[in-house]
Design a binder for these strands. Structure first.
Length: 167
DNA sequence: CCCTGATTCGC
DNA sequence: GCGAATCAGG
């Protein structure tokens, strides 16, 4: 499907309305979001209403060029729970009474996934290197996902069971 | 993982 | 001109 005058008008309209490229592509049909973005740029209407973001980092697109093999990022072994005590940075366990549950060993960039019974002396946090989010890559998925994809909703007990493996 | 726009370049 | 592939970021 090509860009007829009519489709271009729709594109302009929707883009101006603030719809995302993928949403516009879905609505138009027959095009991908890449096609939409490409067209948007060629039409010169890239900038929209106050993204509040720099939009262009000024200097950041040296263009990699080589289309061949992408280098696999070296994987780092998970950092074990700290044995020694680094600079204490008290963190309150969100579900407990204020002031009772604090963990002295949890640093700013350590996974904050709770492990064990918060009431117990053994209670701790995952503590591995946290990527984005307060969690490590493994727990991040569990923390931010609706538990199951595709399948039916998990019952409370099913959810609890699936979560147990992370404790 | 889901998503966003930006850019390049073979077609 | 087009848009897939890729990048960079949320």
């Amino acid at each position: 499907m090509g860009w007829t005058d009519e489709r271009v008008e729709i594109l302009k309209k929707l883009w101006q309305d603030g719809l995302s490229a993928s949403q516009i592509a879905k609505q138009l049909g027959g095009v991908t979001r890449n096609a939409v973005i490409g067209k948007v740029h060629r039409l010169g209407l890239s900038g929209r209403a106050a993204p509040s973001k720099p939009a262009r980092p000024a200097f950041k697109a040296p263009r990699p060029a080589p289309r061949a093999a992408a280098p696999a990022a070296p994987r780092r072994i998970a950092q074990p729970l700290a044995v020694a005590r680094p600079a204490p940075e008290p963190v309150r366990y969100v579900d407990e009474a204020p002031g009772t549950a604090t963990v002295l060993t949890l640093g700013a960039h350590m996974c904050k996934w709770p492990i064990g019974d918060p009431a117990s002396e053994e209670f701790t946090f995952c503590g591995r290197r946290a990527s984005d989010s307060p969690y490590c890559v493994e727990h991040q998925r569990v923390a931010y996902q609706p538990a199951q994809t595709g399948k039916k909703k998990a019952t409370a007990t099913e959810l609890a069971r699936s979560l147990r493996r992370y404790l």
